[in-house]
């Protein structure tokens, strides 16, 4: 699928199916966008595993941080790339190599991160790729939360949303 062209249904399916997200480029600085995204996604029930060689062995928001995707000792469904478009290339290749061993199904590149060659390789290997989007913003947008801050979600629907139960 061409980037920028993802349907709301497609994004909903991805965010509804993944449970564990390896966040490559997760920062220990609480003001970085990755930290905001990590916190938010955890609040929504995802397990987020930080990957950052500079922080390997330490904890970010209470989660153990790993130096690479390979070092994560358990399965994860999605790789969320908080690095440059260029760095997204080798990270995507790691995900392709590890996809069966780790159970990876999605490579997600953050807002402004676009690497079409890497995306083509990943799609050829059977991975789903999203580029130039933020899972936090997409989650908020599709669950009517984005509008709370005055943002344009682009979502138009006369269907009654399901009331979510927060205990």
């Amino acid at each position: 699928m061409a980037y920028g062209d993802y349907s709301d249904e497609h994004i909903k399916t991805i965010l509804g199916s993944v449970q564990t997200i390896a966040m490559v480029g997760a920062s220990a600085n609480p003001n970085r966008p990755s930290s905001f995204a990590m916190k938010y996604l955890r609040n929504k029930g995802y397990k987020v595993v930080p990957v950052n060689p500079g922080q390997a062995g330490k904890e970010i928001l209470g989660e153990k941080c790993y130096g690479s995707l390979e070092e994560i000792p358990h399965k994860f469904d999605m790789v969320d790339v908080f690095r440059s478009s260029e760095a997204a290339g080798p990270i995507t290749d790691d995900a392709i190599r590890l996809k069966d061993e780790k159970g990876i199904s999605v490579v997600w590149m953050q807002l402004t991160i676009i690497n079409e060659e890497a995306a083509a390789r990943a799609e050829a290997a059977g991975l789903t790729v999203i580029m130039d989007r933020c899972p936090k913003i997409e989650y908020g947008r599709l669950n009517q939360e984005l509008g709370w801050g005055g943002f344009n979600s682009g979502v138009i629907s006369a269907k009654r949303p399901k009331a979510r139960i927060v205990s």
């Binding site: 009517q144 509008g147 344009n152 979600s153 979502v155 138009i156 629907s157 006369a158 269907k159 009654r160 949303p161 399901k162 009331a163 979510r164």
Partner: peptide
Amino acid sequence: IHAGSRPEAV
């Protein structure tokens, strides 16, 4: 008519 206003969930 529709932007921003979906039916109220509850």
